[in-house]
Design a protein around this nucleic acid. Structure first.
Lengths: 189, 189, 189, 189
DNA sequence: CATGAATGAGCCTTCATTCAT
DNA sequence: GATGAATGAAGGCTCATTCAT
């Protein structure tokens, strides 16, 4: 029985990649990522076939991590607004406390290394978010718009809010509230 | 900066860079850009000191081009909603008819090659947009939010709308309208 | 050299190496050979110290395999021409029915990974062939040439014949005959 | 006007490649070749697109160089045997005085990096040799064999002769003569 | 002994930038 | 100024070999 492939090592590479990509962009050297992960140059390639493969997996992980943060501890019987607010808050906390993940995700989102298939899987991983959103916009002015459009819109709003909250951290709370109010107004609230 | 002789050549490089960056990302070779521009390898460097320099200038140009498209032919005496709508429409038309410019701009926006100084200059170049926005949100729920935050928000909304209009071109008009309505609702309309 | 347990596995590696080298050349990865042999990556190195070691052994085996094919079922009391013809025929059949072995051998022959010692051992393994050749050229115009030279010559002739027979398989028989006649003429027949 | 591409440099690379390939085989690093040529690492790639490209060109050059050596100063009105002998002698001298070229050529010949197209061009470059050969085998026992087969045969004979002459240089002359006699006998002389 | 993950040197090729012409 | 050849530092990836299990 050989040394088994280590999940820890794989995770270390992912985490290192997040940090390095956040700091240096997608042009970062795989060697830099490996080093940051405390792993040899070549080892990276036993866990991921190519740099692009690593990036695709990283994208998937970050996206679903973000989704989980948004959905965790959701109050069951709450109304649409409360659920939406809970999600919004989780989302913002995730982004603000882990800016590296967000930066890396932003880079990956516009990269053409990310496959269409990966993009699709990723959006499927956000299904929970979609449900909340669906309930939020119900009967509102966007009730007939495609759900995907609504999600894109909300995402954009969140991104903008986070951007601003990070630039002006002292008033992060206030900005977060403003952003949510704006979202709720979009939904007709 | 001594202005090199031919402004045409400089413009050709900018335009070529837009196309190439849109197609290949920021990793595109300067040689590829030069070739697309019909200019020699080395000539590019008489017009721009470094690749990063080219990108910074390109970012500036694209951003101000976008601003101009949003502000062109603005009806003078019109009310805030009409002005905002005019801007919104121009913005969308610009993005939809010139997807290369938009794609390139998106790449540049998240690049760490773009100086803080460049970012500042760029936002200053959007001053006209800011004025319209200021009038639009006046007295609304966002009246006390920092203007930059409002702009970021509106920008994000527009990006999302464009994204969706490009994905579903047949209903581009409808999506554009939905997006604007959402914006107007954010402003309390 | 401690003989490892399974001779089967060793043989499987040799056979796999033949196929892979024939197909991909000497640059083939040891991992590819191991996989083709149905053996693990590392196991290969319990049977052969290094890649070069494997190649040297393979060279030896292929060469002696070829020799055996040439000498098998030799008619005892026959005259020199008949013995030579028998050998010639066996040789050609070996090469034509097992092109992989031949291709691999050709690659190994020019490789500088093959030791001088290996080359010597190999030629010693062809002693049987030498005997036949010796009788064939006896009293002929090449009687005073070094035997090794004669063998080289005959080998070259055979190679050329095989090359051509493989390129034009329909007339393989004819080419084989032509080649042998040429050889016999060299010997003064 | 930029620095023009230098034929000298190109030739230096070819020549360096010959030496390095002769010494280290086709696995030799392009960097080693560049260094031997007194040229920078990257320069090699302005003269040849890839390593394989370099090898294809090298193969062509060596082959035609060999052809030229075999055909140079051919006596015009001479009979077939004299022409053949002249060719044979030229060939051997080429091989013996420039063993690197011959070794490199041998490696390239069995490489699968050499395109079919290259092989064809190369054989076309040996057309002059074919003419002599045609005359030499005229009316002899090989008169009905495909010419290409005859050439292959003669080539093989020459190779064997050269091999032996190089191993035993003191009697090179004698071996060369023996080889030629053998060839002539093949042709029925 | 078998396995296959780990290692890191090494390779081909690309590319921003310089500079001879 | 214009050109494109020259440069050499990287970079992604491979692979023979080792070694923990």
């Amino acid at each position: 029985m050989p040394r088994p492939r280590s999940d820890d090592k794989r995770a270390a590479i992912m985490s290192a990649a997040t940090r390095i990509v956040a700091a240096q962009g997608l042009g970062a050297a795989t060697a830099a990522i490996a080093k940051e992960a405390g792993v040899s140059n070549g080892s990276l390639f036993t866990y991921f076939d190519t740099k692009a493969d690593l990036f695709n997996h990283l994208y998937l992980e970050l996206k679903s991590d973000m989704g989980a943060a948004a959905l965790g501890g959701l109050p069951d019987g709450a109304g649409p607004r409360e659920q939406l607010l809970h999600m919004w808050t989780g989302w913002l906390r995730w982004a603000i406390t882990q800016p590296d993940k967000r930066r890396a995700l932003a880079q990956l989102q516009v990269s053409d290394e990310i496959t269409t298939a990966t993009h699709e899987t990723a959006s499927r991983a956000m299904a929970g978010v979609a449900v909340i959103m669906e309930r939020g916009r119900e009967n509102g002015p966007l009730k007939d718009a495609p759900l995907a459009f609504v999600i894109t819109l909300a995402n954009a709003l969140a991104e903008a809010t986070i951007d601003y909250a990070l630039k002006d951290p002292e008033n992060a709370e206030t900005h977060g509230r403003s952003g949510f109010d704006a979202l709720w107004r979009i939904f007709g609230g």
